[in-house]
Amino acid sequence: MFEARLGQATILKKILDAIKDLLNEATFDCSDSGIQLQAMDNSHVSLVSLTLRSDGFDKFRCDRNLSMGMNLGSMAKILKCANNEDNVTMKAQDNADTVTIMFESANQEKVSDYEMKLMNLDQEHLGIPETDFSCVVRMPAMEFARICRDLAQFSESVVICCTKEGVKFSASGDVGTANIKLAQTGSVDKEEEAVIIEMQEPVTLTFACRYLNAFTKATPLSTQVQLSMCADVPLVVEYAIKDLGHIRYYLAPKIED
């Protein structure tokens, strides 16, 4: 028996919004420690890794490990039927071929349930090696989304250059060149507005804008985003999900032909 309950459907809606542009379907691996999802996007350029800890749920029960392959378009249709403040419960029997998603209004006066067919996706998890990153940048998630959106107008690629002075995002195309520099913030009243750079070595890497923009669909989940970079390895873009877990996106760099 698997049962997981969240106080607000809005969190699940935001999580789905954060992955459904990259993935058509994905396997949710459930164990007593929580829910894990790992999947490459269709073009195998990026990888999404979602971790939801069992202690972040209002109720969590998972008697046997369970892999639930879900069509994310179908899941989006179901979540559209929930009000943001509804409780949401996901339930499945062991070895089931369906999952039930139930919404309850705060006053319990409206209860709806949706049964969704599961898919056998047969996905294998990739092993992600530990990396000592050269640069780790923490910045407001909204600012990162704004920069990715703005620079996508100028080029398919964005160059991220991180030094101890700050982080620079650049794009160059037919229109010309765009550069956006962010300095590390000195002192800020609000932690969520800070730009913090931890640098071991300066690093310059090139990434495809369309994937960065897809990752920023996670912005509503978190006030801050963390970018971890190292020469010739994938960028890690991480959004914390408060009291519940995190979503990480890995993006392969572009290199000189």
Partner: peptide
């Protein structure tokens, strides 16, 4: 022009 690498070349298959 730059060449886009695939993500799986950085990770290990089980």
């Amino acid at each position: 022009t730059k060449f886009q690498l695939g993500i799986s070349m950085f990770f290990t298959w089980p």
